[in-house]
Every structure is written in C-alpha cells, then in structure tokens.
Design a binder for these strands. Structure first.
Lengths: 222, 222
DNA sequence: ACAAAAATATGATCTAAATCATGTTAAAAC
DNA sequence: GTTTTAACATGATTTAGATCATATTTTTGT
C-alpha cells in the first residue's frame, strides 16, 4: 500500500451522498491509497480502523477457513464500499478480508469520520442501508444455492454474475477464485468448466473465460 | 391473520428509535395483527406492502426451493423486524417467507409510512443499518460454514444459536426445521442428533432438546 | 534470468451425506 | 372423533463431489 494523489471528491459513495457543505470536511479527512495486485487491503479479524471506497481496480472480499480454504463472498469494483461490515453492533473487527485482484486505488476514511458523516448526512445512511439490504438478499440467495443447487448450477450462476459485474461476456479469473466463489474445490470447477466447454456454453483461453450462450447458462443456474 | 388490540408504542424497533414527536404518527399508522401457529405472515415473491415488528411469538424466516425444500435463514422473536429485506434497490418483492412457529402478534406499518419514518428519524435509519450489518455478517458466516464445515458441526452451531435465541439450554423445534436451518435433510439431522445423544451433549424429549454440554458443542461448531 | 512458489491439468479413490424405501406415530382438519 | 396429513424413525443404496496423487505450466520474487 502506498499513498496516491488526491481524489476527485465526486466518484465515491461517500462524496456522492454527502451534502455539499460536508465535502470540504471529506476532503480534509480522506486519503487516497493504492494497492498492488494480490496485496491485502484488510484482513478478517483485524480491528476496523476505517472504511474504503474503491476508485479503480477489482477486489475480492473473502472469508478464510484454516490456511488453505477460502470463500469469496463478493467482488468489489469502482464505486463500491469496503469494510462496512465492521459497522455492526459487535466488536469492531473486520469479518472478511479484502485482497486486490489487480492494481487498485481506494479512498480511505477513518471510522470516526465515517460515522460522523452518517450522522450529518441522513441520505448517506439511507443509501448505505439500501446497499446492505441488497447485499443481504444476495447473501441469502447464495446460501440457498449452496444448500439446494449442485456445483454445475452454482458455477453457471457464478459465471453469469461475474459477467454482469464486468459488464462483458468476457473476463479473466483464476480457477481457484472461481472455486472459492462457487463454494467448491479447484478440481470440481475444472471438470465442470470442461463440461461447459464441451456443451459450447463457454470458451476458455488461458485465464480468460468467454460466455458464449448466456441463455443456456441461465437455464443451468435455475 | 386477524386484527388485535393496539400496541404499547414502546416495544418495537420503530417506536424505540423514533423521536417522541413522531410517535403520534406511528400510533395512527400502525396496526396490531395476530397470526396462529403455522400461519404464513408473508411469502417470498409477493410484493412488499409493509414492514412487521414482532411483538410476541416466534417466526421462521425462510427461502423455499421447489415445493418441498426449504432453508431457514433466521428465527425472529420479540422486538425483531420482518420484511425489511424488501427495502433494497431492486423490485419490491419479499425475498423470503415468514411463517409463525407459534401464536404470534406483530405490529404492522405500510411501506410508505415506514420509509417516511426513516427520513424523519435519522437514528432509526442508523439503527436499522447496524441491524443489517449484523445480519449480513451472520449470513456470510453461515455461508462459509455451509461450504467448509460438515453437517455435525453445523448442527452443533445451529443448536447453540437456537439456545442463545431462546436464552435457555432447552427449547422446542421440529427436526424438519432443524434440518432446514442447518442446511441439510431430516434423515441426516436424525442421525447426528443420535450421535450427540450418545455422546451426552444433548438430551431429547419429544420435540424438546436440552443442551447438556455447551462446551463440547462449541468445540464441534469450531 | 532463474529459482521457488502458485496455479493448472487430469486420473483414481474414497466418503459424507443425499436419496430411497417402509413403517410408525403424532398432529391437524373436517 | 375419525380421517388425512405431516412429522418421525431407521435401515439400505447411491452418488456427487471431496480428497489424493502426480505431472506440467505459469507466476512472481530476487
């Protein structure tokens, strides 16, 4: 992590939903930081010092299990907020880790200032609430999928979601991360990707996956 | 469902975090309703008309899958809010169902009034936000458990959580619901309960489960 | 540029847990 | 108060997907 130039005070969640009078305060308090690919932004269990807003790049938000197992709960990109799970009523510890998937710049504000911002800007709190509601819905949908759908369906769902995120039918992701996102192992992902390739629903070139038949993938995802 | 007497304007989430000046408006808009055991309060897919606050009784919040499969995402009890997942940015449809597990009374307010309440009472919005943050953390913890822990561990976790909820080492729940909560099938729950009984971690009397050895259950739950 | 570490590829094996099957009991509903 | 329906009990069978094993390729750190 290293400090980077100042931000435009327009792009991030915090600036977008704060009243104009507050922006000066934001400008004083926020820091622009940059992370290199694979750098850890924060880690599960660490005390929450602040909140991050993603300016550029892609980040995986994940929960670790032991040393070698992982579950990716979300991919974050431009405009997204990171670290907000720490705002619950319990201890102020990050409940997830965030790792840069590519070179990334974020804007950072300490927790105290962010909480003041929430009090000063009711519409910020309201927006954040809505964002939580969306994430909660999604998390519960995923829970149901984990319990009731087989791996192939979950992989189809994961591919479609990542495509939607990138706003493209083509994207790059490691098999390992795909496994962690679909809630399974590398080997199982490997085999199911083979099947999708055979069925011509996707094409694979190195780490780049092309979605060829969205309709059929949707059928798999239920 | 039938209408019941007026509420005390003190107990529920809405009254507790609204400014005193707003309580009169709340009194005008809220309705007290009662549901019998097994009655459906609202169902996944239906349009969200309003928000519920649980006064008395217990409710399961669940997502259905096909006709006979189910996943319980949460048990709600006195003071809890229901239906708030509908506040996300998407379509206003309930993303879960809520079913009374015993005779239950709730206080109900239509969505428009609740949204006005959020705007008028910033601390209500803040509290709700915090509540979402907690639920999101919990949902993601459960997701990780579903992926990385075996059924026995998840059952231990479920039993401990239900005990915590009831604030007792003894509670009543159907095996079916236990299965839906732990993300598995009735048969598997049955066998694992047998094992816990053999190991003297729990005792079972009909549908009542006694937790005998919380410490060891915690060890299982990781 | 090169060594060390990750990630990938792919087959063989194992196992936890789902499914199936069938009988019993308990709880709603008419 | 009896019929219908749902929940419980328990063994036998199947299977999806995890784990293991090993070789190759790609990244990344120095």
């Amino acid at each position: 992590m290293k400090k980077a130039g100042a931000c435009d005070l327009k792009t991030c969640f915090l600036c977008q939903f704060s009243i104009p009078e507050w922006i000066a305060a934001v400008s004083d308090h926020k820091q622009h930081l940059s992370y290199k690919k694979n750098e850890i932004i924060f880690q599960e269990g660490q005390p929450v010092k602040g909140i991050f807003f993603l300016y550029d790049g892609k980040v995986k938000v994940h929960k670790q299990w032991g040393t070698d197992k992982d579950l990716i709960v979300r991919f974050a990109q431009q405009g997204d907020i990171l670290g907000h799970r720490g705002l619950g009523s319990g201890e102020r510890l990050y409940t997830v880790s965030a790792t840069a998937l590519e070179d990334t710049t974020v804007c950072y504000t300490d927790l105290t200032f962010f909480e003041a911002s929430l009090k000063v800007n009711p519409s910020l709190a309201l927006k954040l609430m809505q964002f939580y509601a969306d994430e909660l819905q999604e998390a519960e949908r995923k829970m149901r999928n984990l319990v009731h759908m087989d791996v192939k369906s979950r992989l189809a769902d994961a591919l479609l979601e990542i495509g939607r995120l990138h706003n493209d039918t083509q994207f790059t992701i490691s098999r390992q991360d795909l496994a962690s996102f679909a809630g399974t192992t590398y080997e199982t992902i490997y085999r199911n990707l083979q099947e999708f390739i055979q069925e011509k629903l996707i094409a694979v070139d190195g780490k780049t996956i092309h979605i060829l038949n969205e309709k059929k993938l949707k059928k798999y995802s239920g």
